[in-house]
């Protein structure tokens, strides 16, 4: 009897959850479906079964050189992440292993830099970039994205490093390991998972950053965010192409995101929710 009730409960919950989940996912699903339609099909009203043509995809690449923007997105997100890690790992490390009274204040201050509205510094940054020739350059934007995400990277690494038990370090020191050996053989293997998750999350954030990447680029360094935004002006009926471009822009990060759900919670809540 009790079992029957449980199964019934589970069935109802399952049905409700699937309906809600499909509704939330629907805009993405419909975009993917439309990307496999021809332009004519795309505006012929609601239809869930596409003809399966891939002409939109080849046209997006042929007309706009999608691949160049994709490459820029990869370079910018990976580059800024690696740069941020190089700077943040030592900082997070020292905060986690030799904390002082001020460590918490520094962490909170770093978090507060994240709250500065980007528009407040839009023009100065624009000027600096223009006068130093960094406008529309990959290097300039890489540094920019690095700075934006640095607080999150430090925080996230800090929460991971803090979980490495200090006793292990003491034991290694007792055994006569030098600081260098300690770092290479003891700490690094334990820190790698945390660094990897931080990297994953940061790539996602940098990939989707849509203020500086749009405003500070024109063509050469423009990533997918700028590419997609350029579709907003003409009101023409290029929906299949728009869908194909959108699908291509989100697919890599969507897949990465699915694998990083757990890290996402931790990274974006600054370790407050695990």
């Amino acid at each position: 009897m009790a079992r029957a009730v449980t199964t019934q409960h589970k069935t109802i919950a399952t049905a409700a959850a699937w309906i809600v989940a499909l509704l939330i996912f629907f805009p993405i699903l419909y975009t993917i479906i439309t990307s496999f339609k021809s332009e004519q099909e795309a505006i012929q009203g609601f239809a869930l079964i596409p003809s399966g043509t891939t002409e939109s995809y080849s046209e997006v690449q042929a007309q706009s050189g999608y691949f160049k923007f994709f490459l820029n997105s990869v370079i910018l997100s990976v580059g800024s992440t690696v740069l941020a890690l190089l700077i943040a790992v030592p900082a997070a490390w020292s905060m986690a292993f030799s904390p002082t009274k001020r460590t918490k204040d520094i962490l909170m201050w770093m978090l507060s830099t994240k709250m500065m509205p980007a528009v407040a510094v839009l023009f100065p940054i624009y000027l600096i970039f223009r006068d130093t020739g960094l406008l529309d350059s990959r290097i300039g934007l890489t540094v920019m994205l690095m700075l934006i995400n640095l607080p999150i990277v430090v925080w996230m690494l800090y929460t991971y490093f803090r979980e490495i038990p200090g006793e292990i370090l003491e034991a290694a020191r007792m055994d006569g390991a030098s600081l260098w050996n300690e770092i290479i053989y003891v700490l690094t293997p334990m820190a790698v998972p945390g660094i990897a998750s931080t990297m994953l999350l940061n790539i996602i954030l940098a990939w989707n950053e849509a203020f500086w990447t749009i405003r500070l680029t024109t063509t050469d360094a423009a990533p997918l965010t700028a590419f997609i935004s350029s579709f907003s002006s003409p009101q023409g009926l290029f929906w299949a192409k728009l869908s194909a471009a959108s699908t291509l822009a989100i697919a890599p990060i969507l897949i990465m995101g699915w694998f990083s759900q757990k890290q996402l919670v931790r990274g974006l809540t600054f370790g407050a929710v695990k």
Binding site: T14, W18, M256, L264
Partner: peptide, 29 residues
Amino acid sequence: QPIWGQGIVRILVISPFFVMPPVAALVWK
């Protein structure tokens, strides 16, 4: 709640977060 296919449901629900803002806006528009 205990549901069938929880993993997939979670993936479907979390997906919009990974869509870059210009794409989300254009798709909705």
